[in-house]
């Protein structure tokens, strides 16, 4: 989707999210020189184009008690990666599932998943369930628990939207 200068102003106005007031779209419009109807129309177009992938709240998982979060990585041959990833990504406790490049010899893994849980033991049980479901218990893997989260925010959309490619 080709974003216009107006869209970019709208994105910048939304950088901190939607204001918690009865007419948030009118309020956003005041910050970027659009009326309420235009804000709604532009947002609708961005949802249809997939530029907005979801519209709602983002939880701070640690504040909800999801203290254990693990990046679980696997080394899978190409032909086995896709079927395994499709099974893993459908499990309710697997939140993200990506194929990424290996970096031999330092890093042999090419499938990356995130598994969240309220405690570490539960996450490890879920890892076992996941590898059993996907039939990849024998594949080399590593479980990288997070120890601390230093920054958790979305990308800076104003920064993104100001770029020439945007």
């Amino acid at each position: 989707m080709e974003l216009t200068a107006v869209d970019r102003r709208l994105l910048a106005a939304l950088e901190d999210g939607l204001p918690l007031v009865p007419r948030p779209y009118a309020e956003i419009g005041r910050h970027c020189g659009l009326d309420e109807a235009s804000v709604l129309a532009r947002l609708r177009a961005m949802i249809e184009a997939g530029v907005i992938r979801r519209f709602g709240l983002v939880l701070h998982h640690r504040a909800l008690g999801y203290r254990a979060n693990a990046m679980v990585v696997f080394d899978l041959p190409d032909e086995r990666l896709r079927p395994a990833a499709e099974i893993l990504s459908r499990l309710p406790f697997v939140t993200l599932c990506y194929r990424r490049p290996r970096r031999p010899p330092l890093w042999p893994y090419n499938l990356f998943c995130m598994i969240h849980g309220k405690e570490r033991r539960r996450v490890l049980e879920r890892v076992d369930e996941a590898v059993a479901a996907a039939g990849i218990a024998a594949a080399p893997r590593a479980v990288l628990f997070s120890r601390r989260c230093f920054k958790q925010r979305g990308p800076r959309y104003g920064l993104l939207a100001s770029g020439k490619a945007a």
Binding site: G17, L18, I47, I52, R54, G154, P155
Partner: peptide
């Protein structure tokens, strides 16, 4: 909540 609004 860390954010409320559209996710791009």
């Amino acid at each position: 909540l860390t954010r409320f609004g559209p996710l791009f």
